[in-house]
Design a protein around this nucleic acid. Structure first.
Length: 106
DNA sequence: AAGGTGACAGGGT
DNA sequence: TACCCTGCCACCT
């Protein structure tokens, strides 16, 4: 791995379809920097292929990064297309969809 | 060089 | 759950 950003991309790509995780979980798993750094790294991911940034939300399950997508509704739309319901910019049953990088992927 | 900013989190109230 | 405050750390003026 070259840098912090690449590591964040790698972890983000491992998030299973239909699942979500948090900035803090990624930062914790990488044991590097803080959650803010993860947010910054994902901001860099705009335009990078195969980085499902829409599966990363904040600790409350809110789609705080939606305004950074090409369109403000894309993030929610992508999640719903994977079976994750979103209401008022928040993931419904967030805890049920939560996935931690440390747990085995399915 | 110093201070402001931000796709955040955790703890207290 | 929500709101507020503080810690966080790379980047950009």
């Amino acid at each position: 791995m070259e840098n912090y950003v690449e590591k964040v991309y790698a972890v983000t790509r491992r998030i299973p379809r239909g699942r979500v995780t948090t900035y803090g979980a990624i930062a914790d798993y990488l044991a590097l920097g803080s959650a803010r750094m993860v947010g910054w790294a994902l901001y860099q991911s705009i335009g990078v292929a195969n980085v499902p940034a829409h599966r990363v939300v904040n600790r409350r399950g809110e789609l705080t990064g939606r305004l950074h997508f090409p369109t403000p509704t894309m993030m929610q739309q992508l999640l719903e297309s994977e079976g994750v319901r979103v209401t008022n910019n928040r993931v419904v049953d967030f805890e049920r969809h939560f996935w931690h990088p440390a747990q085995a992927e399915e």
